[in-house]
Design a protein around this nucleic acid. Structure first.
Lengths: 203, 203
DNA sequence: GTCTATATGGCGATAGAC
DNA sequence: GTCTATCGCCATATAGAC
């Protein structure tokens, strides 16, 4: 499907995601979204009545991109260590293709947490499943016992932070060299997997 | 100094930080800041000419809160492991007292990275110093060799992420129980220190 | 469905009285 | 220094022609 075959609705949704992610909710304007979509401002309201409704329509789509990495990992019948490797690889790849999403999610998460939480549930994400898997592994003695929530939040922080803080980190540590930072981000797959292995290693 | 003895300028700065941190730059309005400060909108412009200038005046102050944790650590003559412990304890304490700052910084970092970078330098932060310390320890053979930037960004991600993503994490994993999440955040001091020790442990 | 034109309101910023 | 009143602009949203 090329550019001309896209429905107007799809063009709007793509454009709105681009702009909302770039500028945040308050920073984005309907005019800018219309320009990005190559249509008129009034048409946005024809399709999505209000800015808020347009935002929500696009947002669920964005959020759901990160669901497959988790579910694929949980459903696989590999060992726990291999599941973690799979998760990190998938998650970083998805982040790398959608590098602006973390900041976008963090912003929205502050603006309207209830909305975000609702979207997360409707997107089919089930973090409790992962917690359950971790607890089972602890029971089986495969990994050290502890609060699985620390484990999971460690994992997320290690993966997400370098993307959310990219503009600053790239300037501080890489002379604002974009390619060098991209390479660094991909290196992190190995770094994080090694660290996870140390976390689940029994001494 | 009680509420009445504060200068108007100070009241404005406090109010602007509160509102900017709560709503982000675009989301905050001069009217809301004036209300928060208990003064008139025009007075904001009398003291700080523009919204942008008001923002910058308050921001440098906020950012500088995180500098002491780093410098104190670097200047101490303790072992590397102890330095890391010191850093984590100080950093998490500061985050805990200013829990909204991470998100605020991340937002601003996307809106105007150059401004943020300039402020960071003028606040006296010298991340290169930490990199240098880590490299020296690697040379001495005290910690495993590797890219010190991964080490540092791991550290930051582990500390900062749970604060930046708090509204979501608290809902997902703690039934939105604020006290439970606060306790969890403070537990992380130990969790992160243990993890750091595993990172610097030579097998 | 898509456009131009416009209504309506809030925004940042300023003028000027006190 | 502090206020009220207001300017000019741009935001979201709507009306109505085609």
């Amino acid at each position: 499907m090329n550019e001309n075959e896209k429905t107007t609705e799809n063009k709007i949704l793509e454009a709105s995601n681009t702009v909302f992610i770039r500028k945040g909710y308050s920073g984005a304007s309907m005019q800018e979204i219309a320009d990005e979509a190559g249509i008129n401002k009034a048409l946005l309201h024809y399709y999505f009545r209000s800015k808020e409704k347009l935002f929500r329509a696009g947002f669920s789509n964005v959020f759901s991109k990160f669901v497959p990495a988790v579910t694929e990992m949980i459903l696989s019948d590999k060992s726990f260590a291999e599941k973690m490797d799979l998760f990190v690889d998938n998650y970083i790849d998805t982040l790398h293709e959608n590098p602006l999403i973390p900041l976008f999610v963090l912003q929205e998460l502050n603006r309207d947490p209830d909305n975000l939480f609702a979207l997360m549930k409707s997107s089919g994400m089930q973090p409790q499943l992962l917690i359950k898997v971790i607890l089972e592994e602890m029971e089986k003695g495969n990994i050290p016992k502890g609060d699985p929530r620390h484990f999971f939040i460690n994992l997320l922080g290690l993966c997400i932070f370098p993307y959310a803080a990219r503009p600053l980190m790239q300037r501080i540590f890489f002379d604002n060299d974009q390619e060098a930072y991209d390479a660094f981000l991909l290196e992190r797959k190995m770094v994080i997997k090694n660290l996870i292995h140390k976390m689940i290693d029994q001494k």
